[in-house]
Simulated scan of single mutants.
Amino acid sequence: MLTIDYDRLDVRPGHTVLDLGCGEGRHAFEAYRRGASVVAVDWGRSEVETTQRWLGAIAAAGEAPVGASATAVRGDLLHLPVPSGSVDRVIASEVLEHVPDDAAAFAEVARVLKPGGRVAVTVPRYGPERVCWALSDAYHANEGGHIRIYRQAEVRERLAAAGLVPGSSHHAHALHAPYWWLKCAVGVDRTPAPVRAYHRLLVWDLVARPWVTRTAEKVLDPVIGKSLVVYATKPW
């Protein structure tokens, strides 16, 4: 399940791509398959190990073009393990809402980007996220949980303050917003029948990509899309 639009980010073969807060690697995998040299970064050991394992499976299956490379490493978003001005593209998906000093994280993104390089930042959208917070403290108030809710203007301000030029934006994953509202309403650690049924719908959508759910999400994304995506460029 991808949140960013790789065509808008303009990921090309040979690009160096940094995937920050990679989780289990979903965005790193796509960049790798597109021929990039990918460094996936996360603080969690299990996340890094899982991502590295799947990157190896992609290579073994011949799904990565010749010349592409990928690795997963442990790293701190406030002290990224790459030189200044060395990265063509940065992906920071659903991670900045976890970082206390997000201004420093945005500054690190700007530091590592080459002039003309681009970043895609995704965060939970204000409206759907506010509903989740209202329904459940357990959803966000835990170790490593969400510590803030961004409005789009705030994301753009953070990017500009770091010396980047904000560009286009969009929303994604509208079908996931009601799922999380339901989870928060019944308890995030509980999985009663309605939650299981909705989860099966999401899995079906992910695997089969049927026109009915794809059309519904396209229509609903501007209204209740759970994620906000903003693209920005580092000036020459």
Results as ranks from 00 to 15, higher is better:
E129M: 02
P192F: 01
R33N: 03
L182V: 13
P178D: 12
W133R: 12
D5W: 01
W180Q: 03
G75L: 03
G56E: 03
E49C: 09
L80N: 00
D221C: 05
W181G: 14
V121G: 05
Y179F: 15
Y139Q: 14
R200D: 13
K183N: 12
E30N: 02
K234C: 09
V99G: 04
V41I: 11
Q152P: 07
W211S: 15
V41W: 04
A162P: 14
A107V: 06
R196C: 00
P222I: 04
A110E: 07
V165Y: 01
D7C: 04
I91E: 00
L164T: 05
S46M: 08
M1N: 08
L2H: 05
A174Q: 07
E108I: 03
P13S: 05
Q52A: 15
E24A: 12
E49R: 15
R89E: 03
R158M: 12
V11P: 02
L77A: 08
I4K: 02
H199P: 00
V165A: 11
A153E: 15
P124S: 04
A107N: 05
G44R: 13
V219Q: 08
Y150V: 09
A208M: 14
E63K: 12
L201G: 00
G116A: 11
A120I: 03
R125L: 04
E97A: 11
R74F: 03
L182A: 14
G67H: 07
G187D: 07
P210N: 11
I58K: 00
V195H: 12
V121I: 15
F106L: 07
V38C: 13
E63A: 11
H173S: 10
G85I: 00
V119Y: 04
V123F: 00
L159W: 07
R89S: 02
S169W: 10
I224C: 07
P65E: 08
L20A: 01
A193K: 15
A197W: 15
V121R: 07
S86V: 02
V219W: 14
R53H: 12
D88N: 14
E47S: 15
R190A: 13
E63R: 11
R45P: 09
A208H: 15
V11F: 01
L20F: 00
L164E: 04
A197I: 08
R209P: 04
V203N: 06
P210Q: 12
E217S: 09
P81R: 09
R111Y: 01
V38T: 13
H173M: 06
A162L: 14
V229D: 04
R8V: 08
L18I: 09
R151V: 02
G145Y: 03
G116T: 09
I58L: 11
G163R: 13
L159V: 06
S46D: 14
C22N: 10
L206N: 07
W43I: 15
L206F: 10
